[in-house]
Design a protein around this nucleic acid. Structure first.
Lengths: 144, 144
DNA sequence: TATTGTTATACTCTATAACTATA
DNA sequence: TATAGTTATAGAGTATAACAATA
């Protein structure tokens, strides 16, 4: 006997496969000079939440601190975010989008998002609405 | 001027971030002895489509042939799939789930799916329905 | 000569462990 | 002593290039 909920049938398996495939496709779609999915996700968090410390960004993205170091170093090199010392605690840093970083997020102006925009444009309004409904639910699961 | 469709606003960005985060979370949730997302996706394809050659599986999963070699070697070691020579063309192999592999897929009996099942159990019926609606749309985008 | 699959190799992403600076 | 961030290192996962066997 198994006590899984299982309405609709196989939902976990199908969701896992769909997310895996779409994530892989987005990554492969990315041009070599473009931002990675994780870099893009970090920019989105900073766009949504404003300035954060590396630690806060790590919690928010559910990655470890060294990963944040790498991601933010690359984004700083690209001029998309700035790193300042915390005024009261010199151990901490403050990460913040530059105008260029803000513009990039606001315009969905990255290679993988351009591709995704094109795909979404070919869907019906109803299909786009279905995706829009699913997004916060997926985020909730990812953050739980 | 930009000619993106953009209903609902920022949909591409939000979808990309949600998929990235959920894929990462599922991967980190996985126990060290468990199957990877890609291995699981391969099992699901063989479950759905029956026997395939490595080439066919590569096309279906949108990965390159060497990746299929690695994935299937691991799954064969675990006794989840079998590899036979093609009867007419000795260059080709036939990949097919074993009874153990079939049972694993049918039962969603893997660590990451167990975790995902638990998360899905905490959602409302309406939320599960929203996810179920979004899954085929994500698959369509991933395969386009 | 073209195709299937494998082996060799390299790159990206992410983690853990060890280190430095500050509190 | 505890905490923030970085550096060093290792392990997945996947790709491209080169190779072997077969058509």
């Amino acid at each position: 006997m198994r006590s899984t909920p299982a309405l609709p049938p196989q939902l976990a398996g199908r969701l896992g496969v769909a997310v895996t495939r779409l994530a892989r496709r987005m990554r492969s779609q990315r041009r070599s000079d473009a931002l990675s999915s994780t870099q893009l996700a970090a920019l989105h968090s900073l766009y949504r939440l404003g300035a954060l410390t590396p630690r806060e960004l790590a919690v928010c993205e559910r990655v470890q601190p060294p990963t944040v170091t790498r991601i933010t170093a690359a984004l700083e090199d690209l001029g998309l975010l700035s790193r300042h010392s915390h005024p009261n605690d010199r151990r901490q840093m403050i990460l913040q989008l530059t105008p260029a970083g803000t513009a990039l997020v606001a315009a969905a102006d990255s290679a993988s998002e351009q591709w995704l925009c094109g795909q979404l444009a070919m869907l019906s309004d109803g299909e786009r609405a279905s995706l829009a409904e699913a997004i916060p639910i997926m985020n909730r699961i990812a953050n739980s």
